[in-house]
Amino acid sequence: MDARGGGGQVFAYTESGLQVVDATTGVLAYTIKDPGFDWRGWSMNTAPVLGGSRNVLAIQGYRLLSFDLANQRVGWSLKASFMGSVTVADGVLYVFNSGKVEARAESDGALLWTWGPPEGLPQGTTLVTDNLLFVSTASNTYAVDLTTGMHVWTYPAGGYLAMGKDGILFIARSNGSVAAIAVK
């Protein structure tokens, strides 16, 4: 999918930078170099995420980056202790930094709010709905209000999160079990 939402491009973030490939032909359209790239082994352990502002977002080498597709350059980059993957919705990025969850403006990375789980460290990916951000630790899943940045409820199971139709939150636990919670 391309940044216009109409399809046609595929994005891959590698040591060469952000590669933009024509989805039909497989031909490399262009590469946006990342001068701050820090090689950390054979696996990137991250995936680029298409943003809503003709940009692609990624975390690499403890940095949060926004690649500007229109100008084919790094739009902005922040260095801290960023880990994991980016979740983006309605112009806001949700990322893990120093054991906390941060909400940041997609336009420039400005910090909007920070939340830390009362127990454990956030892990895996986050999941965002119209009004809540779901965050998991090893033992709990939390629902955080998008407006206030405060958690509104806790479920005593942590794991990989997915949202099913009809507002069912699925938590795949490390022991192989799955919890299903109606959150609508």
Rank of each mutant, 00 (worst) to 15 (best):
Asp2Asn: 15
Leu127Phe: 11
His151Trp: 14
Ala105Thr: 11
Leu78Gln: 06
Ala180Lys: 15
Leu50Tyr: 02
Asn71Cys: 08
Pro156Ala: 10
Trp42Met: 11
Phe37Gln: 07
Ala157Val: 01
Val21Gly: 12
Gly158Asp: 01
Tyr30Cys: 13
Val152Leu: 09
Ser53Phe: 08
Ala29Ser: 15
Gly164Ala: 14
Trp113Asp: 02
Lys165Gln: 11
Ala70Met: 06
Gly176Glu: 03
Asp166Lys: 11
Gln9Arg: 15
Phe37Ser: 14
Ile171Ala: 06
Ala143Gln: 05
Ala3Pro: 05
Ala180Pro: 05
Ala182Met: 09
Ala172Glu: 08
Thr141Ala: 09
Ala80Trp: 03
Ala58Ile: 06
Phe134Val: 04
Ile168Leu: 14
Ala3Met: 11
Ala157Tyr: 04
Leu112Ala: 10
Val128Met: 08
Tyr155Ile: 12
Val183Pro: 00
Val183Arg: 07
Ile59Phe: 03
Thr129Cys: 12
Gly17Val: 05
Met1Phe: 14
Gly176Met: 06
Gly116Arg: 12
Arg63Gln: 15
Glu102Asn: 03
Phe170Ser: 12
Trp76Ile: 05
Gly7Asn: 04
Tyr30Glu: 13
Gly116Met: 03
Met150Ser: 14
Ala80Gly: 06
Gln123Asn: 12
Gly159Cys: 09
Val144Ser: 05
Leu161Cys: 03
Arg173Gly: 05
Ala105Phe: 04
Ala157Pro: 02
Gln123His: 04
Leu146Phe: 05
Trp115Thr: 01
Ala143Thr: 00
Val152Gly: 11
Leu65His: 10
Glu102Trp: 01
Val86Phe: 03
